[in-house]
């Protein structure tokens, strides 16, 4: 066992535990915390894959902004323990098995597909991490138009949130 492998298995285990806790917890806050755990361990995996900048962005935006917003809303609405209503029998009995089946099928398909076969057992590139300079060059040259489009998207989202949150006079 070498260091990257240990890191990978620890983080993968934490991510899966977090995802399971998200499903099993009945308090919304616990679910949110579990999701934060998933996001942080994924950030470590990004570091392992050499994507430093993405790892930092993942923590800043996902764990530091989006999930804080979730926790904030849960606190604001004082959302208590989730009630278990059973209107949908299908979801209750078929949900879990189907989900497990789906994830296994997905994993199988990803590994056995045309692309998957090429890289499945490859080690993938070098060990060096991606420099932020290269990434930003890509972002501001090749993908400049999508970048500008997302900025407009964010502006619209801010306006939308404001309109929704505004009190009626």
């Amino acid at each position: 066992m070498t260091l990257p492998f240990i890191m990978f298995f620890v983080c993968a285990a934490l991510a899966v535990i977090g995802a399971l806790t998200l499903i099993l917890a009945r308090e919304p806050i616990h679910s949110a915390l579990a999701l934060v755990l998933v996001m942080v361990s994924l950030a470590v995996l990004y570091l392992l894959l050499g994507a430093e900048f993405i790892a930092a962005v993942q923590i800043i935006v996902y764990a530091g902004a989006i999930m804080v917003l979730f926790v904030f809303v849960i606190m604001l609405l004082n959302a208590g323990v989730e009630e278990r209503t059973d209107y949908s029998k299908l979801a209750k009995f078929a949900g879990l098995p189907l989900g497990i089946f789906l994830s296994l099928a997905l994993a199988y398909w990803m590994l056995e597909s045309f692309i998957g076969k090429q890289i499945a057992n490859g080690l993938g590139g070098t060990n060096a991490s991606v420099s932020t300079r290269e990434l930003s060059a890509q972002l501001f040259q090749k993908y400049l138009f999508p970048f500008e489009a997302t900025s407009i998207l964010i502006l619209i989202a801010i306006l939308g949130a404001l309109v929704l949150a505004k009190k009626d006079e």
């Binding site: 806050i29 915390l33 934060v36 942080v40 950030a43 430093e52 900048f53 930092a56 962005v57 923590i59 800043i60 764990a63 530091g64 902004a65 804080v68 926790v71 904030f72 849960i74 606190m75 991490s129 420099s131 932020t132």
Partner: peptide, 23 residues
């Protein structure tokens, strides 16, 4: 190589301590 980003990343999670303590 991106120390500043990581400092911001860690401080941005710091909100949880306060929010969760309150809740």
């Amino acid at each position: 190589s991106i120390g500043l980003m990581f400092v911001f990343a860690i401080t941005s999670i710091g909100v949880y301590g306060v929010a969760l303590a309150g809740w």
